[in-house]
Design a protein around this nucleic acid. Structure first.
Lengths: 347, 347
DNA sequence: AATCGATCCCAAAGCGCTTTGGATGCTCAA
DNA sequence: TTGAGCATCCAAAGCGCTTTGGGATCGATT
């Protein structure tokens, strides 16, 4: 059962394809009575214009590309990606856009963007997981393909549009919060520090420590893929130190869960013996408690970020000549049961 | 900087578009010398045929659609989805296909498939998250859109192609394993039981219990969104029962982590006081330990399932008249540190 | 009665590609 | 010498849609 075409629909109605097209696209030069007739027939047949033909005729693909980097060593897809996509997808489907996904090893990113541009399958792209100095940004500017970066690239030399969480401030505040509770031995369990967000988080942490004249101990700072295992490993190693941390600052709920496991395995009690603050992306399947948060956390919805990115990109596509846009999301610090005053003297 | 078109390329080479097209597509009726010239020029200009035009001309979109249902109550995107997509994406990019994503509330599924079909944006679709009696299957058959279901739909009345894990057998074996260890009070922490996989898992569990003449206690069976919180909740409630379980069978690593947390919070030791077996989808960011598994688990890579589904679908598209295809993946039971003999008498 | 504007509709071109059905030489056997 | 056969190439149509540039029709205006 082949889908009905515009021409067939026109034939059935005794109209020209032109008129049917205009009727359906809301042009004024068509009688309201015939427009109604057309609309009715279209609905009856479940008619939808063929996207490929429409795209070819209009020059607009009505599709947005998401190029998801996949780290070649670990073959891991960033777990925030599903939620981000869900947020962006809401916006796209509301605006009649399709979403095109490419999951591409780091090494092939440039080639992929070139191809996407040449093949003309999308009107714009979202850049995921920017590094500190990300070559994709220059490339995309050069290619003239509209794009929005989810995150930033500190070292980028050209202006570009982005939506980002204020990672530095979030981690600075989290650190201050722990310092205020009397903690001095604070561990940082961070993401991979070639990722821009991870660098900013570390800087925020360091800035807060420096401002209070507390030294950062390299032994208490790790980076890595943000998994449960990472958190557990880090905690195990650090708790075995002669001068172990009294608090952990984690970049992800999964890491925090790993830390918690190890903490409890040591017979220590969370919020009394050891404090944990974590960043919380508010992933659908990984909630930080319900009404009351389990972990004290810097919270920022990655799904909302997806919505914002998509909205911004569609705006840019609608107004290509406009200046680069930026949107900074502030994480809120929510206090849960995982933090408490530093254990006074005893150790 | 607009991408170069076939016509322009032809003009530059002093050839007709026809010849250039044939040269690039490997048709025999073109001189090898000119083919080389064409190929070289194409490479120099990073030429790629415009997908929309090509699709329109050939009638093949060279794209596969994934329609991801989003449960309207919880707004949760199934966490396995990222890994599945990654697996499928590998296959697509290798075969020159694009991947189109629609994230759609349950209620709009039918409309979405209709639209996808009419708009002609894809050559086939993957159906995610089948229910016990899934209307999408009949609809897709009726629409004549090639598809593969990831999972099965027990009550479906028409033949269709699927790739599935043998969920029943996996959970049956897991249950037998626990029974062999002497457990009798076994709790099932399942996914939502309108999902086909969850039903099969329950049946496997029940079959194993029945075969040993052990009664299933409804108080020890819960279903729900498979999150850490779910596991913790379930465990808390069940451990408070007068006759608490000695073992938990979980449908997801996240649930299992929740159960573990609650178990440890009760001062019980995993593998000695309480056993846990879980299903493990081998998600990239949620590994069940490294060399040695943490949880005893029925393991089956969802990423591999993605690869299989994609491969099958491309096969069906290449050979549309062929009979429905099926592929059953067997989960392996890996033994970790979370299981041990049922605590003898003491309670 | 002739002109003019609206109003409503249509023919045809074009988007960038593939593909059908030749056209043009050139070689080689009869 | 001729025509069959082959190797190479090309013109043009067509995929399903939008859009440009009119063409009717008709009531209103002069």
């Amino acid at each position: 059962m082949l889908p009905i075409t515009l021409k067939e629909l026109a034939a059935e109605l005794g109209l020209s394809p032109t008129t049917v097209s205009r009727a359906l696209n809301g042009y004024p030069e068509v009688n309201e009575a015939t427009r109604a007739r057309v609309a009715q027939a279209a609905a009856r047949h479940h008619y939808r214009p063929n996207t490929r033909a429409k795209a070819l005729a209009t020059g607009r693909a009505m599709a947005i590309g998401h190029v998801i980097p996949i780290s070649t060593q670990h073959e891991i897809v960033n777990p925030v990606f599903a939620d981000f996509i869900a947020g962006a997808g809401e916006v796209y489907s509301r605006e009649g856009y399709d979403m095109l996904l490419s999951i591409v090893p780091d090494a092939e990113q440039a080639r992929t963007y070139r191809e996407i541009r040449a093949k003309g399958t999308v009107d714009g792209v979202i850049v995921h997981g920017p590094k500190e100095d990300d070559a994709r940004i220059t490339l995309l500017v050069e290619l003239g393909l509209p794009f929005v970066v989810h995150g930033r690239s500190t070292e980028a030399k050209v202006p570009y549009s982005w939506v980002d969480v204020n990672n530095a401030r979030a981690f600075q505040r989290a650190t201050e919060f722990l310092l205020d509770l009397g903690h001095r031995r604070i561990a940082l369990v961070n993401g991979l520090e070639f990722m821009d967000f991870a660098i900013r988080r570390r800087r925020g942490f360091e800035a807060a420590m420096a401002a209070r004249g507390v030294a950062c101990d390299p032994m208490l700072m790790v980076q890595g893929e943000m998994t449960e295992a990472q958190g557990a490993h880090a905690a195990r190693a650090m708790l075995a130190l002669p001068d172990p941390p009294t608090a952990f600052l984690c970049s992800s709920l999964l890491s925090a869960m790993g830390v918690r496991r190890e903490v409890e395995a040591h017979g220590l009690k969370l919020g009394r013996d050891i404090s944990i603050v974590t960043h919380d992306d508010e992933l659908g399947y990984l909630r930080n408690g319900e009404a009351e948060p389990i972990f004290t956390a810097t919270r920022s919805s990655v799904r909302e970020a997806g919505r914002r990115c998509a909205t911004m990109l569609l705006g840019i596509i609608a107004e290509p000549a406009s200046a680069p846009r930026h949107e900074m999301l502030e994480a809120v610090l929510v206090v849960g049961r995982s933090t408490g005053p530093a254990p006074s003297s005893a150790r």
